[in-house]
């Protein structure tokens, strides 16, 4: 919230989703409070200005989808695709998220104070994601860029087919997916984790995290050429 400013109340008991999002899209700035979301989908999707939105309650699919510039804080839980394709700005929830949180995000910061379900950070393309609890299976699947910081544990197949994204996990990793390996933690990585913990106001010792990333063995097809080898003999 912006200190000292008046908030606009948008009560979903009397405000439709279309009216809610239209109001947020039309605003150049300002603080908004969304009441009674009651699991509605696409709440605060498509924000593209420096507004600050506080959602009082749990939301459905695609909350803060394709988010840009502004800030969204959800006091509750979120269903599938929280902040999917986030470009910039910040999205934070105090509870837990189900599947595909931060999917394909290109930038910005997503903070999940609780746990995140399967495929957290799937195909992420530059977003930074900090999860206070655990992440579900196949998190960071095909992740291309950005950092996923997990203060708890990671379920099976972490980082399957990962590209250049980086994954930092403090707790246990059930198993790594295809082409994902544990990597050395160097000072620049400690710096990344330190910065993201500070940005997300999460408390943890950056030195406790292990780093995972791509072995880069799947980047190109392996093409044999026996004929050329035989001809060269």
């Amino acid at each position: 919230m912006n200190p000292g400013s008046e908030s606009t109340i948008l009560d979903m008991e009397i405000t439709t989703l279309r009216e809610l999002n239209a109001a947020l899209h039309e605003a150049d700035s300002g603080d908004f409070v969304v009441r009674n979301p009651r699991g509605a989908h696409a709440v605060a999707a498509g924000i593209n200005s420096p507004v600050a939105v506080t959602v009082e309650g749990s939301v459905g699919y695609y909350c803060a989808g394709m988010h840009q510039v502004g800030r969204v804080l959800v006091h509750g839980n979120a269903s599938t695709g929280l902040a999917e394709n986030i470009m910039s700005g910040e999205v934070r929830i105090t509870g837990s998220a189900t599947m595909s949180a931060g999917a394909t995000g290109h930038g910005g910061l997503l903070v999940i104070e609780g746990n995140s379900g399967a495929r957290c950070g799937i195909s992420m393309k530059g977003v930074d994601i900090v999860v206070g609890g655990n992440v579900g299976h196949m998190s960071a699947f095909m992740a291309q860029a950005g950092s996923l910081v997990v203060l708890g544990d990671a379920a099976d197949d972490l980082g399957d087919s990962i590209y250049e994204a980086q994954v930092f996990v403090r707790g246990d990793v059930a198993s790594l997916g295809a082409d994902c390996i544990e990597k050395e933690v160097r000072p620049e990585h400690i710096e990344i984790v330190t910065g993201l913990l500070a940005a997300s106001s999460m408390q943890a010792d950056p030195a406790d995290f292990r780093r995972y990333g791509s072995a880069r063995q799947l980047y190109n097809f392996h093409v044999d050429d026996i004929d050329a080898e035989v001809a060269a003999r």
């Binding site: 989703l17 999002n21 899209h25 498509g46 459905g60 699919y61």
Partner: peptide, 12 residues
């Protein structure tokens, strides 16, 4: 639900 999101983001 995805289509609703796309429509919401593009203002229908």
């Amino acid at each position: 639900i995805k289509i609703i999101e796309l429509r919401e983001i593009t203002g229908w």
